[in-house]
Simulated assay, not measured.
Amino acid sequence: MNHNTPLSPRPLSHLSEAHRRVMSAAQLREHGVPAARLSAQCRPGGPWQQLLPGVYLLHPGPPTSEERLHGALLYAGRPATGPLPRPGGAPEALITGLAALALHGFASTPALTGLDRFDVLVPRTRRLRSTGCVRVVRSAEVPVAEEVTGLPVAPVARAVADAVAQLADADDVRLVLTEAVRGGHCEPAAIVRELNGARLLSRPHVVDAVDALLAEGRARAEERLYEMVRAHGLPDPVWNVDLRMPGGPHLGGVDAYWPEQAVAVELDTRAPRQDEATVWTEYTRKRDHLERLGITVVHLTPKKLREAPEQQATVVRTALMASVDREPAAYVVVLPR
């Protein structure tokens, strides 16, 4: 038998080219290849070679990036074919880290051909060791896979956190975080949540990059808010102002304010960190104080502004129209901030 000989009795037509060229020992047995023949095929100078423990490359020469990725998933115990698990299904092995970001189309990460190792995310209970081109990443919770080029890949926020865990250079971390936001892959809060869960926010170079990320995320959210008001014909508000009682205390800053209707918009750009409970308490205290004065506060998240701007414009327009049916709000002083 040579490497072009069919592995019948089970046909291979249902497999992709990469799946035909990378198979596990169990799959080869299913296709009629006994252990003795497998061993013979993998002798020095033979047509096949062992790529990883229990995983075989069915041709001579170096593997392609696609073959290495399929081999990594096979090593982690994921079937080489079949649909991705449904949401809520049993967690499986996923490509994560830099390899996942490369598959998601990131320009700030090395191409797959430039990676010596691929990170594979598996449940914490799995007894599996890193070996060869596979670095095993364990997690108590494995997210639902996203399908990219037919492969199960971790969502961007989780892949970013797993990549950052392996990056020691501050510039590399900053570039990855910035592209995740500027490229529209995900919101800063989702990334910070994953970094916090991975206990990476204690690293100085990560903290500095996160501060820049949050500033970037807020700027992007403000741009979307401006665009929402313009594109959907809302009346012009005053932007980025502080509200104060006449001769009294500071009430807090808001991102947009319509004085005649006493409607304020505030962007919820909080990021989950250690002091989230304290931040949320201050956040709600300000909102409650403004609403007691008769000011309607509309909270918009960056994600909703990005995914459903028309719906958010309707929420703001409804609040503006409802002002005619409310008691007049208390007079407040509006100052630029």
Rank of each mutant, 00 (worst) to 15 (best):
T5P: 02
L12K: 03
L12P: 00
S16R: 15
E17R: 15
R20A: 09
R21M: 11
V22W: 00
S24G: 14
S24M: 13
S24Y: 06
A25T: 09
A26P: 00
Q27H: 14
Q27F: 05
P34V: 10
A36I: 09
A40C: 02
A40M: 04
A40P: 01
W48Q: 09
L52D: 05
L52W: 14
V55E: 04
Y56L: 10
L58F: 07
L58R: 15
L58D: 03
P63G: 03
T64I: 12
H70C: 14
Y75L: 11
Y75E: 01
A76D: 06
P79H: 05
P83T: 01
P83Q: 07
L84Q: 06
L84N: 04
G88H: 07
P91G: 04
I95L: 13
I95H: 06
T96Q: 06
A100R: 12
A100W: 04
L101E: 01
S108V: 09
S108I: 03
L112Q: 03
L112W: 05
L115S: 10
R117T: 14
F118I: 15
L121G: 05
V122T: 07
T125C: 04
G132W: 04
C133H: 15
C133R: 07
V134R: 07
R135P: 01
V136G: 05
E141N: 08
V142T: 01
E146C: 11
V153Q: 00
D162V: 06
A163F: 09
L167Q: 13
A168F: 11
D169N: 15
D171Y: 10
D172M: 06
D172G: 15
D172R: 10
V173M: 09
V173W: 00
R174Q: 10
V181C: 04
A190K: 04
I191H: 02
V192W: 04
R193I: 01
A198N: 07
S202I: 12
V206Y: 00
D208Y: 11
V210L: 05
R218S: 10
R218H: 09
R218C: 01
E222V: 12
E223W: 01
E223S: 13
L225W: 08
P237I: 06
D242K: 13
G247L: 07
L251C: 06
G253L: 03
Q261D: 15
V263Y: 05
E266H: 11
E266A: 14
D268G: 02
A271H: 07
A271Y: 00
Q274I: 13
A277H: 03
V279Q: 14
W280S: 13
E282C: 09
R287T: 13
H289C: 13
L290C: 11
R292H: 13
G294S: 10
L300H: 03
K303T: 07
K304V: 12
R306H: 14
R306V: 03
E310F: 08
V315C: 05
R317C: 02
R317T: 08
A329S: 15
L335G: 08
